Simulated assay, not measured.
Amino acid sequence: MRRRQRSAVCLLAVVAVLVVLTATVAADGSAVKTTIDETEAAANAMALADQTMLIAAGGALLGIGFGAAVASGITYWYKNREIGGRLQ
């Protein structure tokens, strides 16, 4: 019987702690949400920090591709104008 009483008291203590924690979180949900958002933002920043070289290489490839497209367009326009001038 003593063991049952101890188990009941432990169970009651656990339930009381859970009720208090739930009430605390419910009363101050904005601070908890802010903390969760900040934790997610920090995790995202750490994930991006681990991929710095990959992001830099991707940016360089995009820049090179855009530069090549612009240079091709300018070259086409210039040569088209040059050839058009010779034909007239």
Rank of each mutant, 00 (worst) to 15 (best):
Q51Y: 03
R2D: 04
A45K: 12
A8V: 11
I36M: 11
L54V: 04
G58D: 09
A69D: 05
A57H: 02
V70D: 01
R86A: 13
G84W: 00
V70S: 02
C10G: 00
A71G: 01
K79A: 02
T75V: 14
E38F: 10
L21N: 05
V32I: 12
T22Q: 12
L11M: 13
E82G: 04
A45E: 10
I36E: 04
T75G: 03
A49W: 02
G59R: 09
G59I: 02
N80E: 11
A69Y: 13
R86V: 08
R3P: 01
A26V: 13
A71L: 06
E82S: 14
I64W: 02
G59N: 15
A45S: 09
R4P: 03
L18S: 10
V14Q: 06
A56E: 09
Q51C: 02
A47P: 03
V25D: 06
A31D: 05
A57I: 15
L48R: 12
A13H: 14
L54N: 01
N80V: 01
V15T: 15
G67D: 01
R3N: 10
M1N: 07
G58R: 06
V70K: 07
I74V: 11
Q88M: 12
T39F: 08
T24A: 14
E40Q: 10
E40M: 10
L87E: 07
G85N: 07
Y76N: 06
G84P: 00
A69G: 06
L18A: 12
T24I: 06
G65H: 03
S72M: 09
T34S: 13
A56G: 01
I55P: 00
G67S: 10
A49F: 03
A43Y: 07
M46N: 08
S7W: 04
V15Y: 11
M46W: 07
G29C: 02
Q51R: 10
